[in-house]
Write a protein that binds this DNA or RNA. Sequence first.
RNA 1: GCUCGGAUGGUGGAAUUGGUAGACACGUUGGACUUAAAAUCCAAUGACCAUUGCGGUCGUGCGGGUUCAAGUCCCGCUCCGAGUACCA
Length: 938
Amino acid sequence: MQYNFNEIEAKWQKKWADEKTFQVNSNQGKKKFYGLDMFPYPSGAGLHVGHPLGYIASDIVARYKRHLGYNVLHPQGYDSFGLPAEQYAIQTGQHPAKTTQANIQRYRKQLDQIGFSFDWSREVRTSNPDYYKWTQWIFTQLFNSYYCNKTDKAKPIQLLINHFEEQGNDGLDVASDEVIAPFNATDWKEFSAAKKEEILLQYRLTYLAETEVNWCPALGTVLANDEVINGRSERGGYPVQKKKMKQWSMRISAYAERLLKDLNQLDWSDSIKEAQRNWIGKSEGASVKFKVQNHAANIEVFTTRPDTIFGVSFMTLAPEHDLVNQITTPEQKQSVEAYIKAASLKSERDRMADVKTISGVFTGAYAAHPFTKQPIPIWIGDYVLAGYGTGAVMAVPCGDQRDFDFAKHFNLPIPNVFEGVDVANEAYTDKENAIITNSNFLNGLQGKKAIEEAILALEDEKIGKRQTNFRLRDAVFSRQRYWGEPFPVYYVNGTPKLIKEKHLPLVLPEIDEYLPTEDGAPPLGRAKNWAWDTKNNQVVENTKIDHINVFPLELNTMPGWAGSSWYMFRYMDPQNQEQIASQEALNYWENVDLYIGGSEHATGHLLYARFWTKFLNDLGVIPVEEPFKKMINQGMILGESAFAYRLKDTNTLVTKSKAKMDEVDPIHVDVSMVNLSNELDIDAFKKWRTEFSTADFVTEENGSFVVGREVEKMSKSKYNVVNPDDICETYGADTLRMYEMFLGPIEQAKPWNTAGITGVHNFLRKLWKLYHDKEGFSVIDQPASKEALKILHKTIKKVTEDIENFSFNTSISTFMIAVNELSKIDCNAKEVLNPLAILISPFAPHIAEELWQKMGHHVSISTAPYPKYEEKFLVEDTKTYPISFNGKMRFTLDLSLSLSKEEIEELVMNDEKTKNQLAGRTPKKVIVVPGKIVNIVG
RNA sequence: GCUCGGAUGGUGGAAUUGGUAGACACGUUGGACUUAAAAUCCAAUGACCAUUGCGGUCGUGCGGGUUCAAGUCCCGCUCCGAGUACCA
């Protein structure tokens, strides 16, 4: 009886789809479990073997939880807006919707082939108007909210307007832009409507503002901070520069404290939590005002070390600082201007690469030390960043290495304020242990106490105050792109107005080309119908714009993370036309119990999704504060690239053993042309690319041509991509699923190597054979042997523990051991093989279903109750004791577990082998740990 | 530089609160079956020494330490991977 996996798998995949086996509804009577994968961006390359790794893991857990009786929500969908489809559209003129649709179909086919238990009736696509209607809706909610620091909650903007009408902007504790001119109630009432809107924008949770953005000319769009890596775009690796542009931003900074604090309640890996903590970057200290001499201006600085304030010997402003022009003396004007110009020309990347070069210029101006009133020279230098704090620092060279280096370089004094510390060669940056000296009232104080005293003094003298700063910046939310959500925004004389909720979605218009317009406007500037008719509430031709009733619409679109910031809630009720999801569904499913995905989203998606969740929670829309309770980050599956070695400047290829590495160029070879022994299929290679059709080959003595191997990221350009399709074809989906899990711990990165796959495949065949003999199905309904039951229960125990710990590789070993052992004793008792099928069904669902059916069951195995582990089958009466001498195991001894310590010692000491080992010596000590070990010392 | 991981046979990887290091699998070698090959099955497989059988020495990146006992705990290093980048 053959294990015909292709047939079995097709049969069950069809059955699951036809019978809607995995469709789920909220069910108050059952405990819920929500297992979610980070949904994929459907790229043109299709799935490679790395993608399903996480999906398989979450599918195992989802199926396991079903067996345990949970009501399991396990959906899948597509993050289908994004750059690659648009880049492709630019090149080919194909509408991104079309390529996206084709890619989704391919993904779906590949996913179906692996046998996932997704509830596809809940699929979402972020590029679907039914979906992005609600993305736009959330945007309008953010627009109509401000953040109240007192209650730590977002509130309707109307409450703020009420406050303005009563007392202007006095007495507010809310999140806003940094500098807002004060006004009173009378002022407010007299302001024009446009002026009022302008003021309100400074408080809204999403706002339009002139901001310094990361502009990527090659992509023709701005990027968020998390999309820029080392001064280059995350996608494509193109250079990024700073540019001021009017953009929509998200006031995520208002949520900084909560985003930080609530990390503690999440069951996520420490490294991701740490990455978020660093990204949020909370620092506590004080802001201090320094008066500029002979000038009305004050320079405000932020410092975490107010205790070192008597060590200030100069100040440094960022070149972009607003005051620089005002305070620079005529003598210094020329060099200051030259420096500012040079700094502005440097790209972000240059500036970062240049960290070690110290540069700066004296402005000629002096500030007065807030306590001593001594003059302090004011410098500018690009080691101070305009975007952090106030863009100015009080330089304490004895306590900060950068200030120290700057002082050394420009020969500025380095006064020492630390007791018993030498600061001749480097700054002393220890915050805890520093004892302050030469500092008036701070003398003799240490660490926190000194900082505390300094802040109190600053506040007493009204020259500074306690302050907390965050590194987290507001997130730029506009993209100069076509393939994204349109903003539900139109402009009345430059003032943004929102389209009312009931008229959403605002659907993406058609355009002729997916490029910016000639005058540099985003692609939506090409749309002929992109104006809002406020009378009829619909999109109309641009020609109708009259700025009375018909207004131009926003030309930017939303970024990729918009749709992915809330999709986990849409799955709960994906067809809802009235709400993002029904209250009932939101209350029942709450949030994601297990989220599986890559760790590369640590500071992007995972932070934004938390932000929007908290915001929607503030509004009372959703009942939870956090979207993902527990998260597992699967490691990347790497590719094993293959290289042929070509003699430099020739067309001669040399087999690995004869190639001298300094005389050859390694050339990537498609891994599909290489067999398990690293031998190249030369004929296929010649046909692969014309340049090789005439190549000469220097082979091994036996005529084979061996390639070199190297582990790299799996990518099309490296020709090392392995598709799951081929594996499913050759070995079956169950083998693929088990093999991916068998490779090693889920969180660890590892190279893909099919060498071991036969082992897993053989295991499934052995499993099949356990239920069959030559004649056919051989499971019989008769009592199982004690031994067989012991094997079963040992397996239940271990596999269950392993699933709970996400240690899938070891559970597969356990199955292998169980099947080996059961085969050895020819077990064919249903009492054992029935529960065994259930145990294995989360891992290899197709074969499990087939065996289950053969054992006479008529409903899917997927909801069969999970076998219960019973201790009584495992009770042993003897233990094979390792007998060690001085910690080294020499032999083993089977002894009854009922023996006492003393009895064990006696039996061991009287054993012939012990006497041999001791060779007449008398042991100093005998350690007996009943049930574990015996160690004889001496 | 900082933060977080990691280092175990030829390979992927196991090893509970410190208690038989190398489970399971791949690969390799030998054997059975076969006209032959594949598939399958059986056996061996950390290194070294010894070998007629028993056996012995060394072994979890390196150097120390704690302990009857250390892959596991402590101290000091080395190397590799990931993230981050002048954050005042």
